[in-house]
Design a protein around this nucleic acid. Structure first.
Lengths: 210, 210
DNA sequence: CCAAAAACATACTAATTGGTATGTTTTATG
DNA sequence: CATAAAACATACCAATTAGTATGTTTTTGG
């Protein structure tokens, strides 16, 4: 298994590197201009490679789209929104950090172009079933991690027991994705501040009364 | 002013009727397949008219897009989401009816293709400033009507005073738009049920404790 | 060093795009 | 009824699209 790669290593690495460059530029252009309206030509112009190189590594735009969603996008969401939920520590601190504090630290680029996943969902969530499934995977993973955290909060007695963990998870995710779309329309952060205030109130209500 | 139209009435009416047909078909196709990927040809094929007719009434696709957003879309949102907020009656009944009960009555078509406004926002909210402004108009009108209702709730003593009306309005809208995107990924209403449960809990927390 | 395969480039295709130029038909008005 | 204008149709344009066919260059393994 290891020896097999000893000789073909250089070529194999080159191939993987090229694919990564294509994925990175594709993701960036999808994020900035949308999936459907970003052509293979534009992507390959950005990579400084040619169409021939693209169709050597991918059989279609659909295959690329699925890989961008299934690896690049999924990794980003995992790293930023899912993994932090599994960390030890105060449940409310974790919730505040991922859903509230983090949104303040977004770059102007991210505020202007919105959430890549939300963009995908709204543009091609009803386009083809394969994209639908790939995007649903990410949302489901996020939702599950969130439910787990809320359940922990209940067990530790810091979150009210009379509320469905699933419902809270879905409501948190919905509002987060919603505001990231709406923020696009504005040229300042006032709307984000209002969201943050609204979320802070919501989180406070989840706490068990002492 | 009135006499001017007395004679040209038939032609004027025909023009308005044709434009309405174009707007209706355009809105439908934008909703089903997105704005950027819906061509003038496709729209005019649906109207059973031709490209010549289109460019007689509109100078560009952009002009059509702006009219679809500024009239058709705005009217829809006003009718479904804004006007009900101004009606007399119990504040919580109104909130529940517009944000909670109404979502249950959506057709499969509306569930599959999501919220037209949210689709526009996420597809072209960062595309051109004119679209941005047109969409922001609608959101702002919605937000204002919602704030007014919440303020009324506070005055009537049914909504807690220690919560920002702006924050609640933005959080309600965000979650509503967010879930309408996410619902696209699923082939059943379970995720909607969870949203509804989450929202119901949220609304309950807004109530003044008796 | 040499063949074969992988990586990439060049040059195409047919279909679609927004938009225009130039018709023909319908309606309005003196 | 004549003529002008509005409403609509037909035929085009250059640019862009996803994808293919056929190259050339680089890497691999003997």
């Amino acid at each position: 298994m290891f020896l097999v790669y000893l000789c073909g290593m250089q070529q194999n690495l080159k191939s993987e590197l090229t694919k990564q460059v294509i994925i990175d530029e594709a993701f960036r252009l999808f994020h900035e201009n949308g999936f459907k309206t970003t052509s293979i030509d534009k992507i390959m112009l950005a990579t400084k490679l040619t169409k021939g190189a693209f169709y050597h590594h991918y059989k279609s735009k659909k295959e690329l789209g699925l890989e961008v969603i299934g690896s690049k996008l999924q990794n980003r969401v995992c790293q930023a929104m899912i993994e932090p939920l599994g960390a030890p520590g105060d449940v409310f601190h974790i919730l505040e950090n991922t859903f509230l504090n983090r949104i303040k630290t977004f770059s102007l680029y991210d505020k202007e172009h919105g959430c890549p996943m939300n963009n995908f969902i709204n543009e091609i969530g009803d386009f083809e079933i394969v994209y639908q499934a790939a995007l649903k995977n990410i949302i489901e993973a996020w939702k599950l991690a969130l439910i787990k955290l809320i359940e922990r909060g209940k067990k530790e007695g810091v979150i009210q027991n009379n509320v469905s963990s699933n419902a809270v998870a879905v409501y948190l995710i919905s509002a987060f994705e919603g505001i990231r779309g709406i923020r696009k329309l504005y040229d300042n952060d006032l709307i984000l501040d209002e969201y943050i205030l609204g979320l802070a109130f919501y989180l406070k209500q989840l706490k068990t009364v002492k």
